[in-house]
Design a protein around this nucleic acid. Structure first.
Length: 943
RNA sequence: GCGCCUGUGGCGAAAUUGGUAGACGCGCCAGACUUAGGAUCUGGUGUUGAGAGACGUGUAGGUUCGAGUCCUAUCAGGCGCACCA
């Protein structure tokens, strides 16, 4: 009979479920530990072998922490809103809720088979009204707050209203869409509508007319991180720029805090770097330029204020509002033509076509320092969304400006000693400044000659600030998140419109549930799918949803038709897990104070600039409100690598139905064909299964080598079309979940991407069988005895305890698995069947292979779960060696070894080595310079 | 272009503050046991050489008694950002 993994695993999964072994409750007497996985989007394809990698890793950690006496929260749920379910609904009419439910059930079934210690009582789904209640609630809070730059904290919008009514915009330093300058009087005389529109300028969740990434095929806008290379991340459809009124979240207000927070958390440097890149802080100077013969001024942003004397033209972004004001009559048609052309191009075309283009506006700006007249151009190499949408161009020291100047024949004026700008610009921020126009312009009192670039920047900044020409400014690349999606399957906005002005529905009437619709497509008039909903109006009198035909715009108003994007539901889910069934609040104060934040977060790098920015922002906002006690939600983050597919090939001889084995194929003209990896084992094809795989292969013939058909292989993405998708269920059936868990960890370092390759799985399975055989003999007799363990046995087990205790905390799981194998080999060589040894082995193995450990734990006579055991401590005494092998080296070259007693002192060792016959051979009569003794390792004699 | 990471046997990979490579597993070779099997067990396995030995961590230098590990340059692969002023 032996190790019957199927029976054992079913038995224990059943018991865990019945006994709620993994239920966790807050307990202030116990230290907490919060482990979290990025929750999955339940796709129709089910799990493949790559998905559980991170779950297994975190499961091991959670179990380890539990054995150490921590109260471990390890929840799981589903990111259930998303495009695939909706696309499927559009095609088939099947309600996304139904397909989502089916997919979730399938996921759950697969997850259960792997034996995770999730507390399923805390399961959440983002599409559950109980859950999105709090997504909507947070949105309303964002709508009702603004970000105060002075206190670096969000404040209720009422405080802003009060300031505006008392002192106007003068006393306000707040994150905003546009700088506004109004007096209290002006504010107070504004109509309600005007005031509401103006407040959008500061709200953290606000409505704004912006250029968005519009994807016509998906019929929705997308966030910047959902667009890759100018096409949609999902589906790969083209994306165009379009101006639309959209809900946005003022993420940019938190840019500096998002940047600073990175220093406080334990993430990999590369991930932090990616986020720093995405936030894109850049320190520079804003300068005002007057337009010649006009009272118009405009502002530019530069990081190279020192190059002010090298400005030979200005450039405006085509989308800039200044273009219209600065364009002269003569240039109007040319400019309009140019802008028209730019508008028509998609983001992708703009990326691909980097030819220099632009047009002169006809206007001149005045250099604020020299008084020089500078032509103002329009070009699409300047972006409207960054800085002020206008630049001062310094062709000598910026490659883009250089290309533009060369193309249009504009002067290039070098400012750094010895730089050569005949073929390219000198972009480096180094060198000594020269060519400051000390005499040419009478008004100029700034002289940068002789300064380094760094000094020159500082000097110019100082000059500009002191003379009121501009100010020092920090810019961020991070843009506000566009928060509207023209889709059905997402959280509805708790917003209704009165006179075209949005108002939140009162918090106590949340959640605003997603209505039923007939069709999931946009309406004929181009409204989002919610336009089809009959019952989609807000009754302000009775505070309830009512039919659209009742809209009277006095007490009953239309509701928002857009829904929230995917990241809405995933931005605060970790808080909800702390207290998932709370009807009064997102999370109770007690639960939040107990669990604090996530101690270990495991997930893929693909969320580096999306989810991980948004949820940090979201959490900081909730922190400001006092809802979350920690500013950073995820203390430690581990990125598991991707598991790639390992495809197998068969080689068909052209125009035949004959297949030739890998190493014989060179003499034939063959076509490699993907073959389902599930009918290949160790690259050997199961010929019968192949014949049965597809009808056209039923009479296939084979040319074998050594009576086997050997397949070729390649590492590719795991996908259905390459027939390399491996379902964990298949592996579990054949080897058991414990083997799968061990093998996934044994595959290599957790963070590294690696191909799935079952060639080594037998080794892991064999290890478990060897372990089993230490407990049971061939006839299934339990052979464990109560004898006292020997010194060697103790040493072996304590070595293992030490290794696991040190390696698990640093996620060095692959070496931990090796340590298990080594220890098993040692113990079985020693024929060890001592209870006290095996008991400790079972405990330290339990996080990796929980099922077999439960079974063996029970066999050892325990009637509690191995989860409630105590992680053993190792004793250094047992690890001590009696004798220690020293390597004897001469001038660094190792020659031979000598054994010494463990407590031998340096003097004795040195003397013994020098007196040794072998040593004398190498030393001969050479004078010895010194003898280096590395404790327990090396004696090196230098001469 | 900028930033980050990685290069070690036939393969996946180990290797404390620099301490004298290749743990563990796969594969391969040999042997044992077998009512032949893709089972189990034992031993071997970096390259080269009969051998002592020599050579070996992408390449070339450097620091050191000693370098996979540190420094400089360079090549290759991967990831992120990318007209960000």
């Amino acid at each position: 009979m032996g190790y019957n993994f199927n029976e054992i695993e079913q038995k224990w999964q059943q018991r865990w479920k019945e006994n709620k072994t993994y239920r966790v409750v807050e307990n202030v007497d116990k230290k907490k530990f919060y482990v979290l996985n990025m929750f999955p989007y339940p796709s129709g394809a089910g799990l493949h072998v790559g998905h559980p990698l991170g779950y297994i890793a975190s499961d091991i950690f959670a179990r380890y922490k539990r054995l150490q006496g921590f109260n471990v929260l390890n929840p799981m749920g589903y990111d259930a809103y998303g495009l695939p379910a909706e696309q499927y609904a559009i095609q088939t009419g099947q309600h996304p809720a139904i397909t989502t439910e089916q997919n979730i059930n399938r996921y759950r079934e697969q997850l259960d088979k792997i034996g995770f210690c999730f507390d399923w009582d805390r399961e959440i789904r983002t599409c559950d009204p109980e859950y999105y209640h709090w997504t909507q609630w947070a949105f309303i809070k964002m709508f009702n707050h603004y970000y105060d730059n002075n206190t670096k904290c969000c404040k209720p919008i009422e405080e802003l209203i009060e300031k505006l009514s008392k002192e106007g915009s003068a006393g306000i330093d707040a994150a905003c869409t546009q700088e506004v300058d109004i007096t209290a009087e002006e504010w107070n005389t504004m109509s309600e509508n005007e005031q509401q529109e103006l407040l959008m300028n500061w709200r953290i969740a606000f409505l704004n007319e912006t250029m968005v990434n519009w994807c016509p095929q998906l019929g929705t806008v997308l966030a910047n991180d959902e667009v890759v290379d100018g096409v949609s991340e999902r589906g790969g459809f083209p994306v165009v720029q379009k101006k639309m009124k959209q809900w946005c979240l003022r993420v940019s207000a938190y840019a500096q805090r998002l940047l600073d927070g990175l220093d406080k958390i334990n993430w990999t440097d590369s991930l932090k770097e990616t986020q720093r890149n995405w936030i894109g802080r850049s320190e520079g100077t804003e300068m005002q330029f007057h337009v010649k013969d006009s009272d118009v001024t405009f502002t530019i942003f530069t990081t190279r204020a020192d190059t002010i004397f090298g400005v030979t033209f200005m450039v405006l972004a085509p989308e800039s509002e200044l273009v219209a004001t600065l364009t002269t009559e003569e240039q109007r048609s040319a400019v309009e033509q140019y802008i028209d052309r730019t508008k028509k191009r998609t983001e992708r075309e703009r990326i691909i076509d980097r030819n220099v283009s632009g047009v002169f506006t006809g206007s001149y700006a005045i250099n604020p320092i020299t008084g020089e007249e500078i032509p103002v151009w329009v070009s699409d190499y300047v972006l409207s969304g960054y800085g002020t949408g206008a630049i001062m161009a310094v062709p000598a020291h910026d490659s883009r400006d250089y290309a533009f100047a060369k193309h249009f024949g504009i002067e290039i004026r070098p400012l750094i000693e010895g730089c050569d700008v005949t073929d390219e610009s000198f972009d480096a921020k180094e060198g000594i400044m020269t060519n400051s126009p000390t005499t040419a312009f009478a008004s100029c009192k700034l002289n940068l000659n002789g300064l380094t670039v760094k000094e020159a920047i500082a000097a110019t900044k100082k000059y500009v600030t002191e003379n009121g020409l501009g100010r020092v400014k920090v810019n961020y690349r991070l843009r506000d998140a566009i928060f509207s999606r023209q889709r059905y399957w997402g959280e509805p906005f708790p917003i209704y419109y009165k006179n075209g002005i949005p108002y939140p529905i009162p918090e106590e009437y949340l959640p605003l549930e997603l209505p039923e619709v007939e069709k999931f497509l946009p309406t004929e008039s181009g409204e989002p799918p919610l336009g089809h909903a009959k019952k989609w109006a807000w009754d302000t009198k009775n505070n309830c949803v009512t039919e659209k035909r009742n809209i009277d715009n006095t007490t009953i108003f239309p509701l928002e038709l857009n829904t929230m994007p995917g990241f809405a539901g995933s931005s605060a889910y970790y808080l909800r897990y702390m207290d998932p069934r709370n009807h009064q609040s997102l999370v109770s104060k007690e639960a939040d104070e107990y669990w604090q934040n996530v101690d270990l977060y495991v997930g893929g790098t693909e969320h580096a600039t999306g989810h991980l920015i948004y949820s940090r922002f979201w959490n900081m906002f909730l922190f400001d409100l006092g809802v979350s006690v920690k500013e950073e939600p995820f203390q430690k983050l581990v990125n598991q690598g991707m598991i790639q597919g390992r495809s197998n090939f068969v080689y068909r001889i052209k125009d035949t139905n004959k297949f030739i084995s890998l190493n014989l194929k060179n003499n034939y003209d063959v076509t490699p064909l993907h073959v389902d990896v599930n009918i290949v084992s160790n690259d050997i094809l199961d010929i019968d299964a192949f014949r049965a795989w597809r009808p056209e292969y039923s009479d296939a013939e084979f040319i074998l080598e050594n009576d086997k058909y050997i397949c070729g292989w390649a590492v590719e993405k795991m996908s259905k079309s390459m027939f390399n998708v491996v379902n964990p269920d298949t592996i579990i059936e054949k080897y058991g979940a414990d083997t799968l868990r061990l093998y996934e960890m044994f595959l290599g370092p957790l963070e590294q991407s690696k191909p799935w390759d079952t060639n080594g799985i037998d080794g892991c399975h064999r290890f478990l069988r060897k372990l089993w055989n230490m407990f049971y003999d061939k006839d299934d007799n339990f052979i464990v005895t109560d004898e006292e363990p020997t010194k060697e046995e103790l040493k072996s087990i304590h070595k293992l305890i030490k290794k696991t205790s040190e390696d698990i905390p640093v996620f060095s799981y692959n070496t931990t698995v090796s340590a298990f194998m080594i220890c098993t080999n040692e113990l079985s060589t020693l024929k060890c069947n001592k209870r006290s040894i095996l008991e400790q082995f079972v405990i330290v193995l339990a996080p990796f292979a929980p099922h077999i450990c439960e079974e063996l734990w029970e066999a050892l006579g325990h009637n509690t779960s191995v989860c409630d055991a105590q992680w053993p401590a190792y004793n250094e005494e047992y690890l001590k060696e009696d004798t220690i092998k020293y390597t004897i080296s001469f001038n660094g070259k190792a020659r031979f070894t000598m054994d010494f007693a463990a407590d031998a002192d340096r003097e004795y060792i040195e003397k013994s080595v020098l007196d040794d016959e072998n040593s004398k051979k190498y030393i001969e009569d050479k004078p010895i310079k010194k003898v280096i003794i590395v404790p327990k390792k090396i004696v090196n004699i230098v001469f």
